[in-house]
Design a protein around this nucleic acid. Structure first.
Lengths: 198, 198
DNA sequence: TCAAAAATAGATAGATCGCTCTAGTGGACG
DNA sequence: CGTCCACTAGAGCGATCTATCTATTTTTGA
């Protein structure tokens, strides 16, 4: 089945978009690096580059979102999970030579004011991440409202740390931000335990 | 003095870059919207678009950095300053229709893997912000090490909240992130006072 | 006042952009 | 065996990209 060509296009696009941005990546470069025929791109994506962009955002966003569930497994310690999550992010960013951080942030900032379908795709991805993180924290016994605030704090700190890490070529922002979020989670858990004991 | 043309080019570029990114903005569009002669762009910036980009990053980055000093004035309450800082950011983002958030984040993510001089400019700007915030917190009586960690937390949370706010078209990320950072500052101040009392 | 320098003005080069088009290939199925 | 259809393949279109070029106008300073 030749639909592997389609997958190669999406995967290569995902890598190029997150590194050079959407506007900074040409369709010729995509098909060349994906070893795909040029005609196939418009065969699989009749909506052109924008349709490809939207799909790349949704698929790579969903893939990355699975990491949240992978770290915050039910029954595990959410404090340790938070620490591990940021530590893993730092390793991943460093190992890619500070090239690959968030799969959609670069595109998100680029298209939020220029392409409504792509902006919506980014919003859906972020909403999905926030919902995932919120649910995992609720399962840890935290109140829903507090969980949602922590989810925002977690995603925002991670995204911001990624921006700094890529520009500064350092994992320090990720480590420091991770420590801060870990502290917030620890405090929330402690407060919740105290309330239950009373 | 005709150097106002040069300033118009820089200012207009700054606005366009932060909204559509560096690669997504053409030099023709810049001179058109800046009401500047096309030849003037290459007269003032013989290094072309990249030189313009670097200068835009440095100038608009320095301008934004002054906000840090404006909010964390010596003698003022750092907790209230943090709250005000994020509140002002939220208002600013909303009033621009979620178009203008961080002046350099969009470009930073775009060029960190494609243009070393522009990446370095972004790194210098971020370093400047971190140094400013660190100094202001040190002046508030916090230990230098703790101040620097809080500075990272502050900038990272703000940057990440900006990414989310623009895509979600909501100020909630900025408000929630602001509350988290404000809490961290409050806690650091309280801990420092307790240490001094002992 | 006049020459030199600075800035304006825009035509245009050469490359690349996203995209369309037609032709051809290979395999599945009647 | 022949037909259909998904996919491959790439030439090429018009538009746009960055940048250079020459010519002209404006400003500056001796």
């Amino acid at each position: 089945m030749a639909t592997e060509t389609r997958e190669r296009i999406v995967q290569r696009s995902a890598e190029l978009f997150r590194r050079q941005g959407f506007a900074g990546t040409g369709v010729k470069q995509i098909v060349a690096e994906a070893s795909a025929p040029f005609g196939s791109l418009y065969h699989f994506f009749p909506g052109g580059k924008e349709q490809l962009g939207e799909e790349v955002i949704r698929t790579s966003g969903a893939l990355y979102g699975q990491l949240i569930d992978a770290f915050y497994v039910p029954g595990a310690d959410p404090v340790a999970a938070t620490r591990s999550f940021f530590a893993a992010a730092a390793v991943s960013v460093r190992e890619s030579g500070y090239a690959d951080a968030c799969p959609i942030a670069t595109v998100a900032l680029e298209v939020s004011s220029t392409s409504e379908p792509m902006r919506q795709a980014c919003a859906d991805v972020f909403d999905g991440w926030l919902d995932s993180a919120t649910e995992r924290l609720v399962e840890c016994g935290l109140p829903r409202k507090r969980s949602r605030a922590l989810a925002f704090e977690l995603i925002a700190a991670l995204e911001g740390a990624f921006v700094l890490a890529r520009a500064l070529r350092s994992t320090e922002p990720i480590e420091v931000a991770g420590a801060a979020v870990t502290g917030s989670v620890r405090e929330a858990i402690a407060k919740q335990r105290a309330r239950r004991a009373a």
